[in-house]
Amino acid sequence: MNSKTMLYIAKRLLLAVLTIWVVITVTFFVMHSVPGGPFQKEKSMTAEAQARLEQKYGLDKPLMEQYGTYLKDIVLEFDFGPSLKQQGREVLGIIGDGMKTSAKLGLIAAFSALAVGIVLGSVAALRRNKLIDRIIMVITTAFVSMPSFIMGSILLLVFAVTLQWLPANGETALGLILPIVTLALYPTAYITRLTRSSMLDVLGQDYIRTAKAKGVSGPKIIFGHALKNSLIPVITYFGPMLAYIVTGSLVVEQIFAVPGIGRAFVSSITNRDYPMVMGTTIILATLVVVMNFVGDILYKVVDPRINLE
């Protein structure tokens, strides 16, 4: 790794940290711009009780002071404060609980998308313009154009309601199959298309022709020479894929009643549980930013040809 690469990594790291800071700041001020604050909608509360609650949660202090405390707590102690609606629970604890299920869901979806997408993409590229390539391209085009909630609802309708093969409820292990498939379909389709086009690109390169001319066997060309290089663009998709899975999990967990972070996030929005909304947004956003960062760095490290600015 030369100094140019190090400089690039340092720049990217600075940008990532800056982005996370912007997320925290925007989230904080946006949530505090809501008129009336979080306790206003509760009609049964007296003014005194409300004042006491606000005091308890520090909402009576000046805004900048609250912001300072919030930022300090997050950065130094990783503390997102208590939940307003789930009495006696910390935001971090709720997120941690939800994250167990969601991470399982997301990771399985991501890895199966990678595996299936790379295989299908390679097959499509090797059988270019044959029937199987056409079929793969048509199906992936359709999947790329289908919002996750539509995909989830249709899968629910077909496999849980009509055929009754799988449970509609995502609380059991078997019930996690449909949510995982829903989450994985779009990235799979995307990775398939990505792999196909980069594989076609690579197969047209001179070194492949040289290998062919030297009489290297077909599978060896593909696995030894073409595949490795054609996977480089897929690395750049890590970040966007995670972002998709995070946003997709919001609706997918809603549809299949999976007790994950996405469902907790949506219900905290409807409950106006502000610390919860802020904490979840910040953690999920940080996850996406970090993943984007890692993807970018890997991309540059793996492929030295790429121009570093």
């Binding site: 912007v22 997320v23 946003t247 909304v277 956003a285 996406v288």
Partner: peptide
């Protein structure tokens, strides 16, 4: 550009 857009959209 590097903000996770969907999360920000939901928040806003």
């Amino acid at each position: 550009y590097s903000l996770p857009d969907m999360l920000m959209v939901i928040l806003l």
